[in-house]
Structure formats: C-alpha cells, structure tokens
Nucleic acid binder design. Structure first.
Lengths: 156, 156
DNA sequence: TCCTTAATGGAAATGATTTTCATTTATAAT
DNA sequence: ATTATAAATGAAAATCATTTCCATTAAGGA
C-alpha cells in the first residue's frame, strides 16, 4: 500500500514505542476504529475492513485488539450479548469519555456523558483510596447501568 | 429430600410468585449460593452441589441462574476470564452491597465496601437523571475498577 | 391420586475466541 | 538496496463456555 503516508498516524509512535511493527492490518483496524463512534465487535471490524484489505483475517483482528486493549488504546466491553465490543479510548481529537446504559432486553446501548464529571471525580477519589488500601495500581474503571429502554419497557 | 422444611426458605415465595416450581436443583443451587460469599462460576456450583445432588446437571445450573438473574436475585459478573460469575444479590441477613476491584493480570477479585455509600448515593442521582433523559427503567448498575494487584505489579 | 405442563439431563450444537504452524513481511543491520 | 531475523500473518483446527434439542420425569393444582 504505497499511498500510505510515511510519517504515519498518531498511533504509529505508540505501537513502535512498545516494540510492535506497523502492518497493513493494524493500520486498517486503527483507522477504522478512529473513524467510528460505535461499539464494534471483532467481526464488525473484519467486515468493514474487508473491502479494502481482503487479505486481513479475523485472527489478526483479534490479535490486534488484544494488543490495543493491553496498551489501553482501546476499551473492551461486555454488554451481555456474548460478543466483546471494542472502542477507541480516545480519538485524535481528544478524549470524549462516556459511560453506558444497557438495555437488558434488546441490548441497545446508550452512551451518556451527563453526570460524567461528578462520576469521574468521585471515581478518582475512590481509586486513590482503593489503591492505597488494597495495593492495586488502578488503570481503568467501568460503569454501566442496566435497565429497559423505552421501546422495551411497555411490554409486560 | 425429606428433611427439607415444608414451609421453605425465604426464596420459595419469590420463585412461586413468578410462577416457578420449587425443585431439588433450584433448592440446592440457592442454598449453596446463600452459603457462599465467593464469585461462583456455573461449574463451581455444579461441582459443589454434585456430592449431594448427583442428578442435577450443568444445564440446570445454567437455566436456574438465568432465571435468578432475571429475577434480580443473583448478579452475573464478567471479570474477563471467559466465564461468568454469579453471586446472590443479598442473603437472608440483608444486603451487603459491594463493588469490585479486578486484577487484569491474575484475575484476582477484591470486593470492597469502602466508599460504597458515596458511590451509591451518586449513582442513585445519576440513575434518576438518566431514567428521565433516556426513558430507561434502570434496575441495576455495575462498577468495577481494573488494575494490577500487589503481587502482579512488581513484575515488569 | 391424576393430569397438565414445567423442568430436567445428556448429548449434540453453537459460536466467539484461541491456538497451531507453515508462510510472509517489517525492519534493523549490512 | 539487499539480507537476515524475528515478528506477524492467514487458514484451518481446536477450545470451551453456554445453548439447544428432545425424550423423560416430576411439581403441584384439581
């Protein structure tokens, strides 16, 4: 793929810094993640990338996502439908941290940012206290609310 | 099992109220859950129950847990090791609500109750706001912190 | 006790994720 | 640019928690 800029995207240095090589597949996966604000399954990514990169296999998607999750470039979520979902922790534009509201009926997900500031503030304090008390080095947190969305609620 | 009290345990009425029958398997599963404060996998329960109920199959464990989770008698957790964990929401003694600290390295789980009050207070407010804004009927929440426990941290 | 229907278990199916392994390729050294 | 080397890859097979199927059993109202 000769038309790819040699100076690379913002994540090149991160990958290199961790000793990972820049490959066509990783490039494609990260580019796609960066352009989406959805919660994507490994297969979503596989399908989306296929037209441009028919030679990138599903196995590579999984392997790359594992790396990215470990590097904290990507969040992995479990919304209870049996497949993991992935999301860039923050795009080039900067962070847009949010939490999730999960419908236990239809598995619809709502990203919300309301109340996030208060939540994050409290979480940071809690984090500090927990770190000290339990000797954990805390790197991440997960908050999800579960319930029934409007369209599922009316049904008995 | 003739020695079981005819008036039943505290959950009999809950099950009956939802139209479920009281069976040996359900009894055994609930008894075991009530006597444990661990995060149990379906197989943990299967193994634990087997000596007394060799005729209760793993399928029944899964089916029963599904029911209990739907009735909100049991929480289902995903700690990232590929198997769901189950825990009674509250025992006969009353609630002992806690959140979790998960080591991403060795999957050790710490239950903590510190800060819980502040967290729960904030969560309730958030819940109220989210319910109104997004039309969700919120029934549950999940908070987990991820990091490295003391014994995993030293390692590079 | 009888009857209806929920509940069951065991085996087979499912399906997301992981492993294996022979081949390809990024990249540091030449 | 060429080469050497270890990382990365794809395709197929393996894994393994959970679900489904279906013929049989049993709970509990009549």
């Amino acid at each position: 793929m000769r038309h790819q800029n040699h100076f690379g995207s913002w994540w090149h240095s991160k990958l290199r810094g961790c000793g990972y090589r820049i490959t066509e597949g990783r490039e494609a996966i990260l580019n796609f993640l960066a352009g989406s604000d959805k919660h994507l399954s490994a297969e979503d990514i596989y399908m989306a990338i296929r037209p441009n990169c028919p030679n990138v296999g599903l196995t590579t998607i999984y392997r790359t996502l594992d790396i990215l999750v470990n590097m904290a470039l990507v969040y992995r979520f479990d919304f209870g439908d049996g497949r993991a979902r992935y999301e860039l922790t923050e795009g080039p534009k900067g962070a847009h941290h949010h939490h999730h509201l999960v419908c236990t009926e239809c598995h619809k997900i709502v990203d919300y940012t309301d109340f996030i500031n208060e939540e994050v503030k409290l979480l940071h304090e809690t984090e500090k206290g927990l770190s000290k008390k339990y000797g954990f080095k805390i790197t991440n947190h997960l908050i999800q609310f579960y319930g029934m969305c409007a369209s599922c609620s009316p049904k008995k």
